[in-house]
Amino acid sequence: MSAEPILQINELKTHFHTERGRVTPVDGVSLEVGRGEIVGIVGESGCGKSATAQSVLRLFDEKRLASYEGEIRFGGRDLLGLTPKQMRGVRGNEISMIFQDPLSSLNPVYTIGGQIVETLRLHRPIGRKEAAAKAIELLRLTGIPAPERRAREYPHQLSGGMRQRVMIAIALACEPRLLIADEPTTALDVTIQAQILELIQDLNRRLGMSVMLITHDLGVVAETCSRVVVMYLGQVVESGDVRDVFKAPLHPYTIGLMKAVPRLDGDRKQELPDVPGSVPPLHQIPQGCRFAPRCAFADDKCRSAMPELAALPGSDTRVRCWHAGRIAGTED
């Protein structure tokens, strides 16, 4: 069954129980990541892209804070149905995750090599020596120069780009089938970002590892992903092939996001077209279509009823908008 996606999220809802009541940062998200595919998830802060990613690994405190609904199918089972112990066997082993700030994810008092060895020995029955050799091999794989020396160093001795390479090496230790990268290059300079994205693409090609790439940067998506999922306020508003979505975005939010990015070849004299307002907080979710209060196309229907995420006839792009047909130019 090669057609079956590696990760399939169906109607996922993640609820947080806060002092102000229950909020739902992930509200009915459905998406999939195919085998060997890089899928980009974009949106502004507060749109639920990181919460979706963290829900896949069930990183939220389920005893007090969070509860889940829906289904996360990975490798023939529903991750939401696993016991905490079974889930520990998935994290870092079958699915790995890297974060924006590698320094806060690395332990400052252990060497780089030691931290890779720890991950390896947690999931694999291998000896210390063998693990150490594997750690050096992993560091080399991620393009770290002089890996034997670096393995003996501590996180503070490395630059930001090097630290992110170390995080990737740890993430790759157990040859995961899926890598979740949450804003992996946001804290890095643009020349270092280019190196890290190159590395992620290279590992995707060479190891056939699927990647879920969370970013706010549309340029990063355009350059690295084959499919894109656009989120707004806890929901998917548009998803499809990167080329289709960038060529002809159908959701007014996607259109707004794309126009707001200043481009190196754009007209400098023009104002940057922007969308009015900002993403509302989760306890003030608007009625009907969640984007309606900021949308130029909004009418009474938008303000009262929530559109479904659906494909237009003859299109592979799925979009959550009453006016998508009009925007696509296929209806009046």
């Binding site: 120069p145 630059s159 780009g161 090097m162 300079d189 643009v190 020349t191 270092i192 970002q193 280019a194 190196q195 994205l197 190159e198 940067d217 549309l218 340029g219 990063v220 998506v221 355009a222 350059e223 990167v242 080329r243 960038f246 060529k247 794309m258 990015v261 481009r263 190196l264």
Partner: peptide
């Protein structure tokens, strides 16, 4: 030149060759 070529362009049809930059600052 390196800096300009490193900026990701929001256009999947226009993926360009980058001038690779070795190492860190």
């Amino acid at each position: 030149q390196v800096l300009l070529s490193a900026v990701p362009v929001p256009d999947p049809s226009g993926r360009r060759e980058r001038i690779a930059l070795e190492g860190d600052l």
